[in-house]
Simulated scan of single mutants.
Amino acid sequence: MARAELAAAGIADAALDARLIVEHFSGASRTETITNPERPLDAAVTGAIMAAVARRVRGEPVHRIIGYREFHGLRLALSPETLEPRPDTEILVDTMLPFLRMVAGKGEGCRILDLGTGTGAVALALLKEVPEAEVVGVDISKGALDTAAANARAAGLAPRFRPLRSDWFSAVSEKFHGIVSNPPYISTAELNDLQPEVRLYDPLRALDGGANGLDAYQIIATGAGAHLEEGGHIGVEIGYRQKDEVTGIFRAAGYRLVAAARDFGGNDRVLVFGLGKLA
């Protein structure tokens, strides 16, 4: 019934969204949902499912409805103050891992700064993959930091995750072996062209990158030098048309491009920079 309602409303991933809703509100496992789709549900569960379906029909993203999203093997709670983490951002984690593991392998610790931590997605995924690492997760939103801290506790990573309320580098005093960020990179003029699921439910502050979508990269490139250890690296997610412009910004600040990765659609998505002679 849930799938039929969503399909009739033109929801593109009706079957997937219906399954997520039914699993969440019924407490059924994925195996139970697949092998016994017609099992009876009590009236309260059915009512909760249909209320959730109605919210999805009105345009609310399914992960906002169920309250969490899977990211790099972690289940992360969402809140109105946090961007919903997307699979493409996992590429930022995977692209930075070789650099951070190299640092950790030297036995001298591995300190990471996550700028705009939101749910803590990137920070916590890195902590999960690099047991020697410690992360300071920065965000200007207290609500986002509360969400990230709760996610760290739920994942058993809280001892190595420190939330810090800061406007970019303003309250940061330490130096780090790695700086990571999935910053706002959509130009202000393009915000109205976003899908309603993004434009109406993700926080505007996490989307709006200024007149040309590059404001955050200017801030990061300018401020990172005071907070990057010798031999450290900066990894950033970018918009699919921004590789040359973002590379230019970091080159002008004295960095060289050391790695680049594309997303699952073949678009430029992640850049990693290091200090040193420009190639």
Results as ranks from 00 to 15, higher is better:
residue 123 A to L: 01
residue 123 A to G: 15
residue 88 D to K: 08
residue 148 A to R: 09
residue 145 L to R: 07
residue 128 K to T: 03
residue 122 V to Q: 11
residue 103 V to A: 13
residue 151 N to P: 00
residue 99 F to C: 03
residue 147 T to R: 14
residue 140 I to H: 05
residue 118 G to S: 11
residue 121 A to F: 06
residue 112 I to D: 04
residue 140 I to K: 13
residue 115 L to H: 05
residue 162 R to C: 01
residue 167 D to V: 03
residue 153 R to G: 01
residue 153 R to K: 14
residue 154 A to F: 03
residue 166 S to C: 03
residue 108 E to Y: 03
residue 94 D to S: 13
residue 108 E to M: 08
residue 168 W to Y: 14
residue 120 G to A: 11
residue 125 A to P: 00
residue 91 I to Y: 03
residue 135 V to N: 06
residue 101 R to L: 14
residue 132 E to G: 00
residue 162 R to H: 11
residue 160 R to H: 11
residue 159 P to A: 06
residue 89 T to M: 07
residue 155 A to F: 04
residue 88 D to E: 15
residue 144 A to N: 09
residue 158 A to I: 12
residue 142 K to N: 02
residue 130 V to D: 01
residue 165 R to D: 01
residue 126 L to V: 10
residue 98 P to C: 07
residue 100 L to K: 04
residue 156 G to S: 02
residue 163 P to H: 12
residue 99 F to D: 12
residue 99 F to T: 00
residue 134 E to D: 05
residue 151 N to V: 07
residue 92 L to T: 06
residue 158 A to Q: 10
residue 115 L to W: 06
residue 128 K to L: 12
residue 113 L to D: 08
residue 115 L to F: 03
residue 136 V to G: 04
residue 135 V to G: 10
residue 112 I to W: 02
residue 151 N to E: 09
residue 106 K to V: 00
residue 152 A to L: 07
residue 107 G to V: 11
residue 165 R to M: 13
residue 135 V to T: 05
residue 134 E to H: 12
residue 140 I to N: 05
residue 142 K to E: 15
residue 158 A to Y: 01
residue 88 D to Y: 10
residue 156 G to Y: 10
residue 153 R to V: 13
residue 151 N to M: 02
residue 92 L to P: 01
residue 161 F to K: 01
residue 106 K to S: 13
residue 131 P to S: 06
residue 157 L to V: 03
residue 119 T to P: 03
residue 127 L to F: 02
residue 168 W to I: 12
residue 151 N to S: 04
residue 114 D to W: 09
residue 138 V to M: 05
residue 155 A to C: 06
residue 126 L to W: 05
residue 122 V to I: 15
residue 112 I to Q: 07
residue 125 A to K: 06
residue 118 G to N: 06
residue 127 L to N: 11
residue 115 L to R: 11
residue 142 K to A: 14
residue 104 A to C: 09
residue 167 D to C: 05
residue 106 K to H: 12
residue 105 G to W: 10
residue 129 E to S: 14
residue 135 V to R: 11
residue 164 L to C: 07
residue 130 V to Y: 08
residue 128 K to A: 15
residue 97 L to W: 06
residue 103 V to W: 07
residue 157 L to T: 02
residue 98 P to D: 12
residue 141 S to L: 09
residue 94 D to Q: 14
residue 149 A to K: 04
residue 138 V to Q: 08
residue 138 V to Y: 02
residue 130 V to R: 02
residue 95 T to N: 03
residue 128 K to R: 15
residue 125 A to S: 14
residue 114 D to F: 06
residue 157 L to R: 00
residue 161 F to R: 02
residue 98 P to F: 09
